[in-house]
Design a protein around this nucleic acid. Structure first.
Lengths: 225, 225
DNA sequence: ACCTGAACACCGTTCAAGT
DNA sequence: ACCTGAACACCGTTCAAGT
């Protein structure tokens, strides 16, 4: 027996940093300066330590981002879900969408990565459940969920990127001012409104159209009411 | 008169590098090693110059990526477009989708950035034109185009990211092995098939459902045939 | 056990100088 | 005009050492 005590001996230097403190500091940086500023070096400065001290509490940067995601997933309020399949899918997706809209930096990480918070699994569950209850097979329901997720991810990425460009002169604006009406007559006709339409929030009507289309096949041909 | 000749004098050192050569080298790197490896430093090594020599032919890295995009847009074959609005939108979108599928690294740049190749403007033109001819207003047609683009971008980003993870053990797989059937019964029932379904190409049927849904309102309630 | 410092192998870009 | 070299202000992470 190496020690007299039963409980494991906490030998060595007592900790000054904690995982919770590091994650809280990372959240502060992301909310204050944006994700692109979240570096291990700046994070170390924020908690007043050397960069390498962080690696004792967090495996690497990826694991840090995962912890942030988990924290975020907890804060997205889980909505009341209606019984009607179409409304159920829309309610769940809108909740996720609006939750992510507050943290646009997270969307890119979510879309790319193999990241997935166990705390947000109610979302695919709700969509797939609604699909099956509407008459889809398991495979079709998963496919419908994926279509809805693709649309949501695309909307968030493209539109938050556009939002970050308001004010600054853009290359797109330049291209739209030099349109050739013979080659692209439709675009030329609306070129003055293109940029403002780019910013409009059309997520909800678009989502409704998609869900209608996805569930249409099994709903007796009668589309939506 | 400073010189005897009429045409502008090309004084100074003769060029050893050219913009075309730099862009060709960048393409080689991207295709050989992936976009993430495309750095100004490696590119300089590839053309046998100092990094700063590049900046004489290209404003910055962003402009280099734009040149690559333009080059790529030229190579996406422009398809024959059917007359039927639904089929017209699907044909145009599938062409863009499949073109981008060969260059997944470009999708992220396209989605985020203010990038847009004038050579690919036929795509929004075709979709908006089909929408208007199906009876949508200009605003509705633009909105329909955006919905289709969001879906396409989301599908490309999420699925190419998933494709890059085949083989390696993923965090998602881990999460799906520890599902609680009481909390997420639907997911638990399909957990063994989830990962393979994740890789399946369901772009075309999903797109068709979306386009049906988007054009449904103005097509006399009769959905698609 | 917990933390530090120096180092490695990188980035994009500016600036002053050389040919 | 075109190119180079050194430098600036960064990255994530490894490794050996200190307490």
């Amino acid at each position: 027996m190496p020690t007299a005590s039963d409980k494991p001996v906490r030998s060595g230097r007592p900790p000054r940093l904690s995982r919770a403190e590091i994650i809280a500091a990372a959240k502060r940086i992301v909310e204050r300066d944006g994700v692109e500023k979240l570096t291990m070096r700046l994070l170390a400065r924020e908690v007043g330590s050397a960069p390498m001290a962080l690696y004792h509490h967090v495996r690497d940067k990826r694991e840090l981002l995962l912890a942030l995601l988990d924290d975020l997933a907890e804060r997205v309020p889980r909505p009341e879900l209606p019984d009607d399949p179409v409304e159920r899918i829309i309610a769940a997706t809108v909740a996720i969408h609006d939750g992510l809209l507050e943290f646009p930096w997270m969307v890119r990480i979510l879309a790319e990565g193999d990241l997935l918070s166990p705390k947000a699994l109610w979302f695919p569950e709700a969509v797939i459940d609604a699909g099956i209850r509407a008459g889809l097979s398991e495979g079709e329901a998963v496919h419908a969920y994926r279509s809805v997720w693709y649309f949501t991810v695309g909307e968030l990425i493209v539109r938050t990127a556009a939002r970050e460009r308001v004010g600054v002169p853009t290359y797109q604006a330049e291209v739209f001012q030099e349109l050739d009406p013979r080659r692209t007559p439709r675009l030329a006709a609306i070129s003055d409104r293109w940029l403002s339409w780019q910013l409009a929030d059309t997520f909800r009507p678009g989502l409704r159209a998609i869900v209608d289309g996805l569930l249409r096949a099994v709903r007796g041909g009668g589309c939506s009411d």
